[in-house]
């Protein structure tokens, strides 16, 4: 039983670290700021969730799970807002490579109005 739990925790921890690593790799490899945002802001949230899950699996006291939930909720509510703010600023300041977009309906609508 405890061996199975340990294996589960190990797998979850490795997954969390792997997602964090892809965030770093994507951050370095993707060509424009908007694309970087996708790997920069999201897989790390999954990585953090996985790590929190591992802590939850190993923790003993029941109310410690409360603060894990609090951290997870806080991260889930703030990460998309931060990503949107940075993405909006990036788009507005032209940090997007138009040759990598196959369609851009926002600049079309912006130029119409």
């Amino acid at each position: 039983m405890s061996v199975a739990l340990d294996v589960l925790v190990a797998v979850v921890l490795l997954l969390g670290a792997l997602f964090s690593l892809t965030a770093g790799v994507g951050l370095l490899r993707f060509p424009d700021t908007l694309a970087r945002l996708h790997t920069g802001a999201k897989p790390q949230v999954i990585g953090l969730m996985a790590t929190l899950l591992a802590i939850g699996l190993r923790a003993e006291a029941p109310l410690n799970i409360g603060i894990l939930l609090l951290v997870a909720t806080c991260q889930l509510m703030t990460a998309p807002v931060a990503a949107h703010m940075v993405g909006r600023a990036a788009y507005r300041s032209g940090r997007v490579r138009a040759d990598l977009l196959i369609i851009d309906e926002l600049s079309r609508d912006l130029s119409e109005s």
């Binding site: 964090s20 965030a23 920069g40 790390q44 953090l48 790590t51 802590i55 940090r95």
Partner: peptide
């Protein structure tokens, strides 16, 4: 750009958080 640096710092913070976890 400045935004790329902000994003990189964000990832760095997330890595720190996963490390603490």
């Amino acid at each position: 750009s400045r935004l790329d640096r902000a994003l990189a710092l964000d990832v760095l913070i997330a890595v720190t958080m996963v490390g603490i976890g």
